[in-house]
């Protein structure tokens, strides 16, 4: 990767825009930066990151498939109803089913059945949806608001920084899990989107700090100083120079933060305080299975594995992207 210093001629009028550097440090006008293809990115990944990426695609792809199955195809796609109790009453037949709770894995039930005879595999696949939504909404919220605030205060400094960072510190002082527990207990909130937004709101300080640190560093770089020197408006510098260079760092942090958010949601579910039952989540599956852990430990292990590997994968991929982003930043 080559580093190209932005060139500014003293003869140029002061309204000249600073050169774009977010693409491998190459100015917009001039040699077009070479974007790495998906295949090149894939090849450059270590094996663990490749494995993690595949896992995340499977889990979240499966969750989307499950959601499409229930909302569009009314359960017609080949995946069992996650809430159907195989020993439950059927209005159609007027009889109870002949399934058993805690069945061992079989061709019909790949991971067996839970304490009330529901297909565990299907519940794990559907459970991924809640994790996906919580992680996406919270990360999106954090990236947009936290990322912008951090980039802004790192660039403008002064009173704005003092006021915003004080507010951020106040939010940071909230014990997130306890606040969530209080919210769902007192206000009886069970809506997935609202829970996600609250988790996202509580994530803002972390994103802000990460973005601010990067923004502080970027704001002292030569190309930003040069842009200031030639009189580019601060808003333009922020939009064209700072934010584009802060964004990769914040996005890669978002993956690591998403892992944390999934664990928080899992904790809420485990405590019975997340989305409304019988919606499956990995946390409420673990909670339900612990009552029978001496009889069938696997029913607790399967959702735990899904949670652990997903969190591990997000960390792996997030770390890798963070490393990539820092290489790019140092190459600017």
């Amino acid at each position: 990767m080559t580093t190209t210093e932005p060139t500014v001629s003293l003869d140029q009028p002061t309204v000249v825009e600073a050169p774009k550097v977010q693409q491998s440090g190459v100015p917009r006008e001039g040699i077009k930066p070479k974007r790495a293809s998906v295949l090149e990115v894939w090849r450059s990944m270590p094996l663990t990151v490749k494995f993690s990426t595949v896992w995340l695609i499977l889990v979240f792809g499966g969750a989307i498939y499950a959601k499409v199955d229930t909302t569009i195809f009314d359960g017609a796609l080949p995946l069992q109803d996650p809430n159907a109790q195989t020993n439950g009453f059927s209005a159609a037949t007027g009889e109870f089913g002949d399934g058993e709770p805690l069945e061992k894995p079989s061709a019909d039930h790949w991971l067996g059945t839970d304490a009330i005879a529901r297909d565990t595999f299907s519940r794990i696949v559907h459970g991924g949806w809640v994790s996906l939504i919580v992680a996406s909404v919270a990360a999106g919220f954090g990236v947009i608001f936290g990322g912008f605030l951090g980039a802004l205060v790192g660039f403008v400094r002064g009173r704005t920084e003092a006021v915003i960072m004080s507010a951020i510190d106040v939010i940071l002082a909230f014990p997130a899990l306890i606040l969530l527990l209080a919210m769902v207990s007192i206000f009886r909130v069970r809506d997935l989107l609202i829970i996600s937004l609250v988790i996202g709101f509580l994530s803002i300080p972390a994103y802000t700090r990460v973005a601010r640190a990067t923004s502080l560093a970027i704001s002292q770089r030569e190309f930003v100083l040069a842009a200031r020197a030639i009189g580019t408006k601060p808003g333009t510098i922020l939009r064209r120079e700072v934010i584009p260079n802060v964004l990769p760092v914040v996005l890669s942090y978002a993956m690591v933060a998403a892992a944390f958010v999934i664990v928080v949601e899992g904790s809420l579910s485990f405590l019975g305080l997340s989305v409304q039952l019988p919606t499956s989540t990995w946390g409420n599956m673990i909670n339900l299975a612990r009552a029978d852990i001496k009889v069938d430990v696997m029913q607790a292990v399967y959702p735990s594995l899904a949670l652990v590997i997903t969190v591990l994968s997000l960390n792996q991929v997030g770390d890798w992207f963070q490393k990539r982003a820092s290489h790019r930043a140092s190459a600017l």
């Binding site: 809430n83 159907a84 109790q85 439950g88 009453f89 304490a115 009330i116 405590l271 019975g272 305080l273 039952l277 019988p278 409420n284 909670n287 339900l288 299975a289 612990r290 009552a291």
Partner: peptide, 14 residues
């Protein structure tokens, strides 16, 4: 939020 009570409630809900 006892797991057995949660399970029993879901049986009724079904």
């Amino acid at each position: 939020p006892d797991p057995t009570l949660i399970a029993a409630t879901q049986v009724i809900i079904e």
